[in-house]
Design a binder for these strands. Structure first.
Length: 290
DNA sequence: GTCCAGGGTCCCA
DNA sequence: TGGGACCCTGGA
């Protein structure tokens, strides 16, 4: 990878294992949206950016200093995803899923944002999750001027902790609202220290997170994987449960993927979700024919 | 318009 | 250990 700064952008030339659409649409984050020209615009780590991919290069708005302080870390660019993809391709199914997800990277997201986002994600569909998070940010985030528009950061735990249930009514997030406030208060008060948890054994982090109301196995695992960046965490949701059942049966143990089980999970999730519509259609056609 | 299910969690029997 | 309730809405 060659890094070149020009024209208000940092260009990552000859970059490998980087697919912007897959990174932003594999279900790990909810705040990046595609512009009509194919670029993604969003706010992460308090900074707004415009990012696009063209001819083997990735272009990220901002200075080299922005890139080095924020985006290099955020996109986990020091890790060799090509080697990981080979390592988790343990059988024909995973070879297919990993090839389908080539270019996915696990973002190093803000820990509180990951916790809040996955609390809101429970028993919810992705378009609606995005809508709820977008409203939360618009109402309670800090403004960030960028590209002639005003964006908002993800509101801090302190900000959300100061809100009441009626403040959150506009989110239309239903029974998740008290969970969000309780989590914010726990983080803001220091009852739970996400920074410290990222240095603890994963099982300890999981247990601490699950003490929060509305945080069970799935949400806690997502926070450990996407927020604490523990790549061996393996969240099991409806998609993964079905995929594992179909391909491995009941005796499956994610430990077969070793320290990168979470990346394997993400390949599985993205593959299962992306192929569901097509698979259903094929099934219907087969049934019609029969 | 209706119905089902969505990156779950928790409580109770 | 399984079933139902929980808020709301996208999509068929």
């Amino acid at each position: 990878m060659r890094i070149v700064e020009h024209g208000g952008f940092v260009e990552l030339a000859e970059i490998r294992e980087f697919d912007l659409a897959r990174i932003f649409e594999c279900g790990q984050c909810f705040r990046w949206s595609a512009a009509p020209d194919g670029a993604y615009i969003g706010v992460a780590m308090g900074k707004a950016a415009r990012i696009y991919q063209e001819g083997g290069s990735v272009f990220i708005s901002g200075t080299l200093a922005d890139f080095n302080t924020v985006w290099r870390h955020y996109f986990d660019l020091e890790r060799d995803y090509e080697a990981i993809r080979r390592a988790v391709a343990i059988d024909p199914f995973m070879t297919k899923a990993a090839a389908f997800g080539a270019g996915i990277r696990i973002l190093r997201q803000d820990k509180w944002e990951a916790l809040a986002s996955f609390i809101l994600s429970q028993c919810n569909n992705i378009p609606r999750i995005k809508k709820i998070i977008d409203t939360l940010c618009r109402l309670y985030g800090e403004p960030v001027d960028f590209d002639g528009r005003t964006f908002q950061t993800f509101p801090s735990a302190e900000n959300v902790a100061s809100l009441s249930l009626s403040d959150l009514e506009q989110l239309r997030c239903g029974y998740r609202a008290p969970f969000l406030i309780e989590a914010a208060r726990a983080v803001a008060s220091g009852d739970i220290n996400l920074e410290a948890l990222s240095n603890r054994p994963p099982e300890e982090a999981l247990a601490a997170l699950k003490n929060l109301a509305g945080v069970g196995d799935k949400v806690a695992s997502c926070v450990v994987l996407f927020g604490l960046h523990r790549l061996d965490a393996f969240p099991v949701d409806t998609w993964i449960r079905k995929t594992v059942r179909d391909h491995y049966g009941s005796s499956f143990d994610p430990a077969v993927f070793g320290e990168h089980a979470g990346i394997a999970q993400q390949y599985m999730f993205f593959y299962a979700r992306s192929n569901q519509t097509r698979a259903d259609k094929m099934l219907c056609e087969t049934e019609d024919a029969g």
